[in-house]
């Protein structure tokens, strides 16, 4: 499997009270558990990102419970109001228990 790699697009600077847009992507096949291997005919076991959480300075901003109907390489976009400077942390949880994390700092312009 290709390396699972999260990517985030978030502004580095914002004004207090400003609404900013955050885009996230993580490379992941989101194996639905419905597909069959074309050679063996056997069902390929489910393996998806089932949870996404974004926090700002420890406070949950957005979280999502994901099902196999979410496309491969899950893309999530959301908006938040910036209360001040701080760090956004992002975590994706895999069916196998792995957690993939990244973060992004916001300074006050």
């Amino acid at each position: 499997m290709a390396k699972i790699k999260p990517r985030v697009k978030a502004p580095k600077k914002a004004a207090v009270g400003e609404i900013i847009e955050i885009k996230t992507l993580i490379s992941h096949p989101m194996e639905s558990g419905q597909r069959k291997d074309s050679k063996t005919g056997e069902r390929i076991p489910r393996k998806i990102i089932n949870k996404f959480v974004a926090t700002f300075e420890g406070e949950e901003v957005v979280s999502a419970d994901l099902h196999p109907a979410v496309s491969a390489n899950p893309y999530i976009r959301f908006e938040m109001k910036v209360p001040g400077p701080g760090e956004l942390r992002f975590a994706w949880t895999d069916d196998d228990g792995s957690v993939y994390e990244t973060s992004s700092k916001i300074a006050i312009a």
Binding site: I19, F56, E59, V61, V62, A64, V70, S71, P74, Y75, I76, R77, F78, E79, M80, K81, P83
Partner: peptide, 8 residues
């Protein structure tokens, strides 16, 4: 802190 909107 979130705007209640999302895209996927």
């Amino acid at each position: 802190l979130a705007v209640p909107a999302a895209s996927t």
